[in-house]
């Protein structure tokens, strides 16, 4: 009994899009400009926060939820980290993490225990955090301690990214937690029937999401030099676009993979960078990003539907075959 081996379009397409972006902007802006060391470094620095926060958001999305708080968290966690840094540089990361973890715990609990919708709840938290950013950091931006300026080094960041990737990959792909998380995204009811504590898994997922975003917030604060109330504007949209363009399914599940956010992040960065180099205004850049988001989500969902109905058809065909052999027997 055979099934046709379908070409793995869904896996390949994000890479094709990335290559396409590279080529297009290489042509428009000139490959030498795009691939120059200074440009690559600039792109990496912008992409660093997106990837790190993205590692976190992937957890929330994999279980089928949404976490739109990342932009506001970048400001709030980063700001508090800087304030704490005024007392001692050692407090910087812990202060940020506390904010991120608390935010994630709240969001996770609202969904896991109270069955509230994650999109609406994370939206409410985002608005509240943005307001707090206005309150605390609009007039007097928070400045990180000078002793931490070493973390802004590109090589250091590359090492941090690799270590972080390995750690997160371990949890995501090599522990039961990762399996359960993806399972919840596929079929939450089935996970309950396996005796898994679904609530605990969900809350941890959001804690990871908030925590990793807070971690990125510190690096972001040091890179920019100060945290005011404008930090993080449209950041969560960038992370979300990175996820979906990279091929992470809208509803999460087993097909979510960590590397996809990296591909997607690079795609978004190249897109933004390429447009800026070509002299596009911020308005045009946002317009194109919006269209790319809608197009990629529509297209991947379309492909998923086709694949799903071909699976159903295969089952029907198989049943006909089975019935045929049963009758003949």
């Amino acid at each position: 009994m055979k099934t046709k081996k379908n070409f793995p379009w869904l896996t390949v397409i994000p890479f094709l899009i990335l290559a396409f972006m590279l080529i297009i902007f290489g042509i428009i802006d000139g490959f030498d400009k795009i691939l120059s060391v200074s440009n690559l470094e600039s792109m990496f620095n912008q992409g660093f926060a997106i990837i790190v926060a993205g590692f976190g958001m992937v957890f929330a999305t994999t279980m089928g939820g949404t976490d739109i708080t990342h932009g506001a968290l970048l400001g709030l966690a980063g700001g508090f980290a800087c304030v704490a840094g005024g007392a001692s540089a050692w407090l910087v990361f812990p202060a940020a993490l506390i904010i991120g973890i608390a935010s994630g715990a709240l969001l996770g609990t609202l969904n896991a225990k109270f069955r509230a919708n994650t999109f609406m709840m994370s939206l409410a938290i985002m608005i509240a955090f943005k307001a707090l950013n206005n309150l605390f950091f609009a007039a007097s931006p928070a400045v990180p301690p000078a002793s931490l300026s070493f973390i802004n080094n590109t090589v250091f960041k590359i090492i941090v990214l690799i270590v972080l990737f390995l750690l997160v990959l371990f949890v995501y792909n090599y522990t039961p937690y990762g399996v359960y998380l993806k399972g919840i995204g596929e079929n939450e009811v089935a996970m309950r029937h396996v005796g898994i504590n679904v609530a605990k898994i969900k809350i941890i997922a959001f804690i990871i999401s908030g925590g990793l975003c807070a971690f990125a917030a510190v690096f972001n604060a040091v890179r920019i030099g100060a945290v005011d109330n404008k930090v993080g504007v449209s950041f969560e949209m960038n992370v979300m676009m990175a996820m979906f363009i990279g091929g992470i399914p809208v509803n999460g599940g087993m097909k979510s993979q960590l590397y996809k956010i990296i591909i997607g992040a690079f795609t978004i960065i190249i897109l933004t960078n390429g447009l800026t180099l070509a002299g596009a205004d911020s308005g045009l850049t946002q317009l194109i990003k919006g269209i790319v988001l809608l197009a990629s989500v529509a297209f991947t969902l379309f492909l998923n539907r086709k694949i799903s109905s071909s699976h159903e058809q295969a089952a029907v065909n198989q049943k006909k075959l089975d019935d045929g052999t049963a009758q003949a027997a």
């Binding site: 399972g183 079929n187 009811v189 089935a190 029937h193 599940g253 699976h311």
Partner: peptide, 10 residues
């Protein structure tokens, strides 16, 4: 289908 299996998974 609803309570046991993840239909879109392998």
């Amino acid at each position: 289908d609803a309570d046991g299996l993840m239909l879109d998974a392998s």
